[in-house]
Design a protein around this nucleic acid. Sequence first.
DNA 1: GCCTGGTCTGAAAGCGATTTCAGATCTCCC
DNA 2: GGGAGATCTGAAATCGCTTTCAGACCAGGC
Lengths: 336, 336
Amino acid sequence: MPLRPGRPPRVTISDVSTAAGVSAATVSRVLNGTARVDSSLVDRVHAAVATLGYRPNAAAQGLARGEWGTIGVLVPDLANPYFPDVLKAVSAVARSHGRRMMVMESDEDPAVEHDLVEDLMRCCDGVLLCSPRMPRAELAELVARKHPLVLFNRIVPGLPVPSISVDFHGGMTAVCGHLAQLGHRRAAYLSGPSASWANAERLRAFESARAFGLEVEVVECGATSEAGYDAVAAVLAAAEVTAILGYNDLVALGALARMRELGVAVPSAYSVVGFDDISLERVAHSNLTTVSMPRDELGRRAGELLEQLLVNGDDAEPTYLPMSLQVRDTSGPPRG
Amino acid sequence: MPLRPGRPPRVTISDVSTAAGVSAATVSRVLNGTARVDSSLVDRVHAAVATLGYRPNAAAQGLARGEWGTIGVLVPDLANPYFPDVLKAVSAVARSHGRRMMVMESDEDPAVEHDLVEDLMRCCDGVLLCSPRMPRAELAELVARKHPLVLFNRIVPGLPVPSISVDFHGGMTAVCGHLAQLGHRRAAYLSGPSASWANAERLRAFESARAFGLEVEVVECGATSEAGYDAVAAVLAAAEVTAILGYNDLVALGALARMRELGVAVPSAYSVVGFDDISLERVAHSNLTTVSMPRDELGRRAGELLEQLLVNGDDAEPTYLPMSLQVRDTSGPPRG
DNA sequence: GCCTGGTCTGAAAGCGATTTCAGATCTCCC
DNA sequence: GGGAGATCTGAAATCGCTTTCAGACCAGGC
């Protein structure tokens, strides 16, 4: 018998029912409004609830109803400025539908994602999987469980699971178009995590870029401003490169910092373009040219998608939300 | 009967037990390792679990064990760059003790905090309350419920609840000392949210500042860089002020941006000092003088405190973690 | 006045696990 | 060979709530 040590004795529904002189069923009916109850009993129940300080046990409710009233979200990295915005929107949507939000973080380790999702499935009505890096096979296995699941910022063709993502490919294509139009012919891309689908999508855009005369060479980098800072040396050594594309804004800002230190002029010597438009701009004063995405619309839509799925098993087509190019001060025509 | 529509039929422990030809009790014992079981049965159970894809229902476990295996965290604003770092650390600690993390956000509205905490208490073993703005009486009422609760970044004298906080008062005192030593006599403080205890603690430091010859006048501002940007006008109009203290770094950076625009020299005309040391510095290149706090140690400690409380009802003294002054480029001796 | 039909209520059966308790089995020793 | 004691197992109670089901009660119509 788990007599929780030092824990206060929980007030249960039967305490309320005896105090009010009614049955537990009636208490439940009153509190949930699931059936008409004589108004005198209603009053007695409410009074008893108030004096005893009764709060229904969520685990018991979950068990009895077959629903936890909770959604789960898995993100790769809570500290990444990207995800809190999304979480905020998802949490608001969830709350508006009376659900709570459980959060887990894989800490950028694809190997643990699967277990975490499995754990979320044990205690959540639905799961939102943000930017999962796990291989397609694992993802397919999770989808096969038929537990409500929504994919966020990863789209896997052929996998029957509601998905929503930013159109990374379109965003990067826009960046390339912008640079090509300015007259650039050769750019360096500071590449993100190799397991990342978002990175793969960006890379895919470079093929179409070739069509309008821009050649992009890939430099292994990472996702942090430190990585961007460190990658600058390799870029400057490359011949004929006149523009730098960052995997994200942090990388681009890191590179920008290094270039300032080295006295490399931006945008006259090199154009620098970011990705994501994390809203540090007002703070950073770098006026980085970048592409932005509607982060909270994205979060909201993802939340709604999950809710839809929970309520009436809707299975929609993958949604891509467009990114929009923000031309600011760090891009311009190449020298010469 | 809640036959969840479209939901897959859940595999229960009794499915496993019949498949393995043992009792449910044995399955439970095998999976939890709570008692010796004959190895042949162990194998049969594991085989059945694997083929059926069984995962224990968390709600049922929670009910039976009287423990949810979950902690709850309430933060005022997920988008505030401060909290994700804390959440990250808390989540890691929780996970290392086999617990999940539920997250809620009050969206800076003190009025909803109470209900959210109440909800968290219905489904979590313990609750971590971050920077609550609610009045003391409400807080006291929650504490009186005897549900494990830890206070983070708010300390209420006389309230018997484990608390941990950054030493805001000490941090701001250090800032004042620094400015006084440089020769400043009069500073403006861009004040944060008035309901915030953290803001009150900073204000309290100005009394001691007077002792070493620094007078601080308070300008209503807010917590965002926009607010800091807008507040500059009022400060420049004030006579004899030679230094500006931001409620936090965002405010200070916003002010800095505005001052750059106006051509006001920093630090020769005005010193500007931030608070928190959010790690945008590498990105912002503003080299703001500020005070920093060990955010993830803070999160870790808070998590451990809660765990302690859950395991052996420990009730410790409030802990203050020190802040450390980071003198960088935006502070210097006053002109003249 | 009795029977039908409609409301409202409570007893009891789940929900899916854990845990107690008692019975079955097995060993060992006298 | 039989009894004591130690192991292991399963039946059943329990956690706290929801929901079904049937009974109690009342009003109204013949």
